[in-house]
Write a protein that binds this DNA or RNA. Sequence first.
DNA 1: TTGAAAGCGGTACCAG
DNA 2: CTGGTACCGCTTTCAA
Lengths: 348, 348
Amino acid sequence: MSDSSAPPRRRRPSLADVAKHAGVSEGAVSKVIRKAYGVSPAMQERVQKAIEELNYRPRTGARGMRGQTFTIAIGSEMPQLGNDFFTQVTSGAARKLGGSGYQLIIAPSLDGTDDADQKVLDALVDRQVDGIIAISLDVGLPFLDRLAEYVPMVLLGRHDDPQNYDTVTNDDQAGATLAIEHLLELGHRRIAHLTVRPTESTEASLPPHAIREATYSRIMQERKLTSQVIYSDASESSAHSVASSLLDSDDAPTAIFAGNDTLAIGALRAVAERGLTAQDVSVVGYDNIELASHPLVSLTTVDQYGFTTGEKAIELLMERISGERTSPRHVRLDPALVARSSSSRPGV
Amino acid sequence: MSDSSAPPRRRRPSLADVAKHAGVSEGAVSKVIRKAYGVSPAMQERVQKAIEELNYRPRTGARGMRGQTFTIAIGSEMPQLGNDFFTQVTSGAARKLGGSGYQLIIAPSLDGTDDADQKVLDALVDRQVDGIIAISLDVGLPFLDRLAEYVPMVLLGRHDDPQNYDTVTNDDQAGATLAIEHLLELGHRRIAHLTVRPTESTEASLPPHAIREATYSRIMQERKLTSQVIYSDASESSAHSVASSLLDSDDAPTAIFAGNDTLAIGALRAVAERGLTAQDVSVVGYDNIELASHPLVSLTTVDQYGFTTGEKAIELLMERISGERTSPRHVRLDPALVARSSSSRPGV
DNA sequence: TTGAAAGCGGTACCAG
DNA sequence: CTGGTACCGCTTTCAA
């Protein structure tokens, strides 16, 4: 009986193998694969042939020791993966990277420990990626600013003022204003705000939800209208139960502005269950997730342009990778209102 | 004016730095970080201290040249990212990997070129990941079998018979049977099957959809019932229009078994638009996507257990990484029917 | 233009 | 148990 029924794991050909096969120096091969200057057409062709014959591909790890790894990474929390905004961002980044020779990878933080987000980012730096896009991570600015000394980095959705990294943010203030003004223009006056319970954040900057809430409060106050903020957990079902209580209470509003689409859909369910329509209680969300456009849902919401965000993030990274810029840039994208049938003039 | 307003990119401390700082050999440091045998407690402590003082972290690329990279990758097509089954698989894999020291990365194929899927996988092998999970990729068995000679690999949703890699599949035949039997038991006899147009696949194995369709045809034939297969594109809207024509035709069925939930939801919309209910036309899907459980949809469907699939995939990879197995294993998971309100007994 | 050789940051084997 | 050292595969001088 043979002691190895399956062949052992195969070794890929190395640059040295190619050099030997082509009868040239390793340096020459290296120049060819990097398309560097100073190679004769004859050499070029000869090496190319050897590369194809051996089916050679350079190893990223080895390249990275001296040069680049041609890898851009998106770091995020695990739950974000199912999030439509996240998907949009990724698509935008992927599109921008297509054909560039860079590979995009997504690294989710695995466990739920409180330093899990730091660990993902560390893991990416360990892997010497050429650039990092970090999205909605629960880490402090100092940590990020220090990491950004080692690798180009851009943070998404973070209203920060860092030294070493760039940011691309949705203008949450503008977006929230769009949503509320929309309801006001329709004629609503009793507008409630449904959002997630604020966490005790050690961050200097306000998270998107907090900004949306603050904007709501400010506008209502300016208009001399009564604010009504209600909190729920992040889930649709939690939003549903909170919204249900609200609708059943004495001071039920005629409109609900939700901090995001998931919450909005929970609220919408509560509305539908009570046989109410948008004329009774209008609902507006935030994010324009895929489900929002579904005919059975048709949610009025605010689009954050995730795709553009992803594209922009890559642009910023590339400017740093190429070395043409070292000072931080902060790009703010303008959100847009997408009016659908979940909002309408209040009935008489 | 200073010619470098921002400091240049910083270099991380190396293992040599740590060795120097601790006054020990590099080999000793290496053993400590790998928790290898043969280190005295004194040495261990001394090195540990130096590591912390320098905030040292080993670089994956360098480690990979001799040993492992402690990275497991999931390769997939870009559009899959938003897919709920994909998210489930990823969560399962992440959960299984938590605390193991391995980092999970997801690599989407960037461009839409026809060899894009091969390229992602190549890119992952280039990066010397320790294991690859490939999901619904359009690549032939020979290519995969060759790649799997270099790195442990498991394919998802592929009814293959490969030499070098493992597979985890949903038993599509069993799942389709569950769906159809469910409708039969409810009393339906005129059951149509709505699925995506079959592509000319060069693959030896049948894709999931084809298996579901074949199962449908077989069961209908066994029961001496008339098969009625209608094709649409993959989108919800395409399914909607195809289903609309079907419902308006003379031989409208009393039930529709759709090849996946997206199609089912399109059909459901057509049903709802006509003021019909589940008693008139029942709809059953496949996948149990998140939207399926939404109260406004409430779709009866078949759950593929993506989470378990992800966990199982990691298990299989680990068996190969540890070297305890070299022969292929093929795991078939049993799907389950999730009955909701989109299906019911036919009305009188 | 080309080749030789010195790194990059780890691992693994060797002798002591 | 420890230190020394060859080596992994690629990039980058530096001469020729």
